[in-house]
């Protein structure tokens, strides 16, 4: 019963992901593409929840649905002539795109077919965020503080690049 509900949710989410991903690359209006990209990100967060990875799901929502989307919105809004009747908003490289995607698909299918999927004997963590928090603040405390330094480096370099106007 429970697993059938889970697989139903999985298929619904997958359908949303694939459908909105196709819309992202086919819609004419770039802003609408972005909105469907957000839907894709959000549904992927749902997949993470199904995989018991609540922390990853939260990160997905915060960083992808939140931050990356905001960055993309600003990137779109700052592009010159985005709404120009002169500019043709069509994909002019359909055939190379299809070839690349086809090669990627075939390679992935071959790899998936040749992999022996081993299932771990260990039970999944019921509260992954506790495990992550514990190890982040005890075993991996140095990398944890280094993250802060990395973030500040990103911040300062972004400011320096952006202010060079």
């Amino acid at each position: 019963m429970e697993s059938s509900v889970q697989s139903a949710v999985f298929y619904i989410l997958s359908a949303i992901i694939v459908g909105s991903a196709i819309l992202v690359v086919t819609l004419k209006n770039i802003f609408h593409s972005l909105l469907f990209l957000v839907l894709t990100f959000f549904s992927i967060a749902g997949i993470y929840v199904l995989l018991h990875a609540e922390f990853i799901a939260a990160v997905q929502v915060l960083i992808y649905v939140g931050a990356i989307t905001v960055l993309l919105i600003f990137a779109i809004m700052m592009t010159a002539q985005i709404y120009s009747p002169v500019l043709r908003q069509t994909n002019e490289q359909v055939i190379p795109g299809l070839i690349i995607v086809g090669v990627l698909l075939i390679t992935t299918l071959i790899v998936l077919g040749n992999t022996a999927w081993r299932v771990s004997e260990k039970l999944p963590e019921t509260q992954s965020i506790v495990t992550i928090g514990k190890s982040l603040l005890t075993t991996y405390v140095l990398p944890f503080e280094v993250v802060s330094v990395v973030l500040i480096t990103a911040l300062i370099s972004a400011i320096i690049i952006a202010r060079r106007d």
């Binding site: 939260a58 960083i63 965020i129 506790v130 928090g133 603040l137 944890f144």
Partner: peptide, 9 residues
Amino acid sequence: VFLFPWAVV
């Protein structure tokens, strides 16, 4: 994002 696991433990 890093505040969440911290807050839990």
